[in-house]
Design a binder for these strands. Structure first.
Length: 682
DNA sequence: TTGCATCATGAACCGAGTTC
DNA sequence: GAACTCGGTTCATGATGCAA
């Protein structure tokens, strides 16, 4: 449960004595032993000593002594620990006196740093004077430090010390001895031979270049996400779930380094794994124990509710409670009980409804209200619902009677077109106003419509006669919108006539511009058809505005394009090539703008022709390699390898065919239906 | 195989009660 | 009244299960 208390700042571990300074890495920093852990350990030791009796008491004192190695700093830490924040006054008491007596006043001794840095010669001399130090440094231990890593460290040391030749000879001899072969190499081995042996061992090291998955690294080296966070990795497609996150591949050497840094040795990794297994077992036991307790609780609750344990403990809510502790056993059992009661009540209501509907001659609608009544959530009793159904049925019958009556009356008076008029629909639906009033309204509406139609016919005849008198086209009746408005009575006759006169003036001006353009094109020796499809010319004829010079330039440009295109097509035809090749980008650009030369455009067409031939040849090559049942048309666009090879020649026909076969194997449910020319995914 | 959510665990911390 | 104990809360961490 969330608390209203503010979040606390987490304090860094306190440092004491020689460690009272910041360290480069956390793992170097000694942590203050935790009081709770101390308490537990002390309690555990007390229980142990009680359990093992007097013999253990002797061991107990011994363990106190041997605590000097692991817990040696413990009393110092307690002695050095700062006072707790809560200060409630003085008064040491016995506990304090006892603690003071138990903890000796000891100050940790720390070597003072040298006044001057140690020289390289001194450092090497020290290193050589301590064979064990060098051995430890160069030790190839238990599988975590492969020869590559040891050699790398040695090389880094040489670089750091600027050690060359004779300086580093001892280093390489030791490495050859410890990391390569202790029988073959010794302190008298020539340095060249030792170095060559180390290089050969590094080259032969199987861990170099090996890559492992993230999961494998975590499992094999007991590394966590945090440990792997800083390491480089490559990705590859997830081999199991191809559309899932890609697999991360780490180098084994990096993982070895991380594991060595974290655990120190293979034994430590195994110990960590054992600890982890123990924790997991404990957790499993805890979970299983809780699960078992909840199962028993669930069974008891089901029995108390009078339900079948065998039947209901397999249902989802019961399993969720047992497995994850969701809800309460009593709540789950109560929900089951309610479910049963609800079902019984529903069955009873359904039976009652069917009986009453049969009695009243009603048919039950399978709508949401019906199901709500069955479920008991509608707020209606069965009797109320049946009464409602009965009323609805009577209303429906009355509506049908009104509809039949008024339809017949309208038909008698020749007013069948008013069957769906708003007033009629309203009368059928509500019964108001009376049938006689509705019929009277329809009659009046019918007379008004007839009068309006007669007037429209007269206006049409008048405007048609006027158009003929003015020698205007008869189609002005349709194309001049104001005339239409006049016929419908929306404007005056004079307005319609003015609109027709304006239309006539516009038509005459347009015809004049058309003749002007035709003469211009004819004079320049250009085809007259240009007036029909060059957009600038069309715009001029319709609206005017452009200068004749601009129209002429547009027409001449079009003429030049057509000439270039015709010449290019003729040249292609002479070479036996199709005119479709002029779709090549360079050819299109030449035809459109005249950029380049005809020869260059022709060359582009030839190249396009060659590319098409190559594509057909590569496609044929791939098709020939496909086994029966794998159709090229079904898969080519789904396989990048095929598209790359066929379109640009990247890869090979074998690779492309293999990709299609693999895709076919991975998606057997996809097929190409010849009958419908369609693709289907099951 | 990965990434994410969930859960168990342990440690640190806090406040109230107890001891001396 | 200081020091200590105890129970409860919060947080970090790692293990596990599950979906994709």
């Amino acid at each position: 449960m969330a608390s209203s208390r503010p979040r606390r700042e987490r304090k860094a571990p306190e440092r004491f004595g020689a460690y009272d300074q910041q360290f480069d890495s956390e793992e170097e920093a000694p942590l203050r032993p935790r009081p709770a852990a101390k308490r537990r350990r002390r309690k555990f030791e007390e229980e142990e000593s009680e359990a093992s009796g007097s013999s253990a008491a002797a061991e107990d004192s011994g363990s106190e002594d041997e605590g000097g190695s692991s817990g040696g700093e413990e009393p110092e830490s307690e002695a050095e620990a700062p006072p707790r924040k809560r200060q409630r006054g003085g008064g040491g008491g016995k506990g304090k006196a006892a603690a003071a007596a138990a903890v000796p006043s000891l100050k940790l001794f720390v070597w003072a740093p040298p006044a001057q840095p140690v020289s390289r010669a001194d450092f090497l001399a020290t290193l050589h004077a301590c064979p064990r130090l060098m051995e430890m440094f160069l030790e190839k231990d238990d599988g975590l430090r492969s020869v590559t890593l040891v050699a790398r460290d040695a090389a880094n040391l040489c670089t750091a010390l600027c050690a060359k030749g004779a300086d580093a000879a001892e280093l390489w001899r030791t490495l050859a001895y410890t990391a390569v072969d202790s029988r073959r190499y010794s302190a008298v081995t020539p340095v060249d031979e030792a170095l060559a042996a180390v290089k050969a061992a590094v080259r032969a090291d199987s861990t170099r270049g090996q890559r492992i998955t993230k999961s494998a690294a975590m499992k094999e080296f007991r590394l966590t996400d945090k440990d792997l966070a800083g390491l480089n990795y490559t990705t590859r497609r997830n081999p199991i779930f191809w559309n899932s996150a890609p697999t991360k591949m780490y180098t084994r050497l990096d993982c070895l380094v991380a594991a060595h840094k974290k655990h120190g040795s293979l034994q430590a990794i195994q110990a960590a794994a054992a600890r982890s297994r123990a924790t997991a077992d404990k957790r499993k036991a805890t979970l299983a124990g809780g699960e078992e307790a909840r199962r028993e609780e669930m069974e008891a609750a089901l029995e108390a509710a009078g339900l079948s344990v065998r039947k209901y403990q397999r249902k989802k809510p019961a399993k969720a409670f047992v497995k994850r502790g969701m809800g309460t056993a009593a709540g789950v059992a109560a929900a089951f009980k309610k479910e049963i009661d609800d079902a019984a009540a529903r069955a009873k209501r359904q039976q009652e409804l069917l009986r009453r509907a049969q009695e009243e001659g009603l048919s039950l609608p399978w709508d949401s209200t019906y199901f709500a009544v069955l479920a008991g959530t509608s707020g209606q009793s069965v009797e109320q619902y049946v009464a409602g159904l009965k009323a609805a049925k009577q209303a429906q019958e009355a509506r049908a009677q009104r509809e039949a009556s008024i339809t017949a009356a309208l038909q008698r008076e020749g007013l069948s077109g008013f069957n769906y008029a708003p007033g009629v629909s309203e009368y059928i639906r509500t019964g108001t106003p009376s049938e006689a009033q509705v019929l009277a309204a329809c009659r009046q509406q019918h007379e008004e419509q007839q009068a309006a139609q007669q007037a429209a016919v007269e206006r049409t005849q008048r405007i048609t006669a006027w158009l003929a008198e003015q020698q205007m086209p008869d189609n002005y009746r349709y194309i001049v919108r104001v005339v239409d408005h006049y016929i419908l009575g929306a404007c005056s006759e004079a307005e319609a006539q003015q609109a027709c006169l304006r239309q006539q003036a516009e038509d005459q001006a347009r015809e004049q511009r058309r003749q002007e353009v035709s003469q211009l094109l004819e004079g320049e020796g250009l085809p007259a058809r240009y007036a029909g499809f060059i957009s600038e010319v069309q715009t001029y004829i319709r609206f005017g505005g452009s200068s004749l010079t601009e129209l002429l330039a547009a027409a001449q440009a079009q003429h030049a394009r057509e000439q270039r295109s015709a010449a290019l097509v003729a040249a292609l035809t002479a070479e036996g090539l199709g005119s479709h090749l002029t779709a090549a980008p360079a050819a299109r650009a030449y035809i459109s703008t005249g950029d380049g030369s005809q020869e260059a455009a022709l060359a582009a067409c030839r190249a396009q022709h060659q590319r098409q031939l190559q594509i057909i040849a590569r496609r044929t090559e791939v098709v020939a390699r496909l086994p029966p049942g794998v159709l090229y048309e079904s898969y080519y666009y789904r396989c990048p390898e095929v598209l790359d090879f066929v379109n640009s020649g990247q890869g090979s026909a074998e690779t492309a065919a293999a990709a299609m076969v693999a895709f076919h194997a991975a998606h057997p449910a996809l097929y190409f239906d010849d009958s419908d020319d369609g693709y289907y995914d099951y």
